[in-house]
């Protein structure tokens, strides 16, 4: 898509990231917070890929440098998968234990 500038992709990425940040702060449901984190991860993935596409995969870069973006995206996906599996398991465990999953009430770790 040569007609679309890099800044457009970055703008979308920025918007998704900020939305995710807001969501993490204002929501109280841990699952939704989790989803907002996924949103932020994906925003970053988008930024990775657009940089790889626009900055490194051009004649000035090299394949080696350009592949850094996709590679990182793959790793982020894998880490996200692991994170979700364990995180949702923890949420389920908390729910079983306390019958409650409001993050504001999950404050047993306070000092």
């Amino acid at each position: 898509m040569n007609g679309v500038p890099l800044s457009a992709y970055l703008g979308l990425s920025m918007f998704m990231f900020s939305t995710g940040v807001i969501g993490v702060i204002i929501r109280r449901n841990p699952i939704v917070i989790f989803m907002c984190i996924e949103l932020m991860l994906n925003a970053v993935n988008l930024a990775f890929l657009s940089f790889a596409r626009y900055k490194f995969a051009t004649a000035e870069g090299s394949l080696e440098s350009a592949m850094g973006g996709p590679m990182f995206v793959i790793f982020v996906m894998a880490v996200a998968a692991a994170e979700v599996a364990v995180g949702l398991g923890i949420i389920m465990a908390i729910f079983r234990l306390r019958e409650n999953i409001d993050v504001d009430e999950l404050n047993l770790l306070k000092g």
């Binding site: 109280r28 993050v103 504001d104 999950l106 404050n107 047993l108 306070k110 000092g111």
Partner: peptide, 9 residues
């Protein structure tokens, strides 16, 4: 430890 409220948000 006063600062550690346990409130994640």
């Amino acid at each position: 430890r006063m600062a550690q409220s346990g409130a994640v948000r």
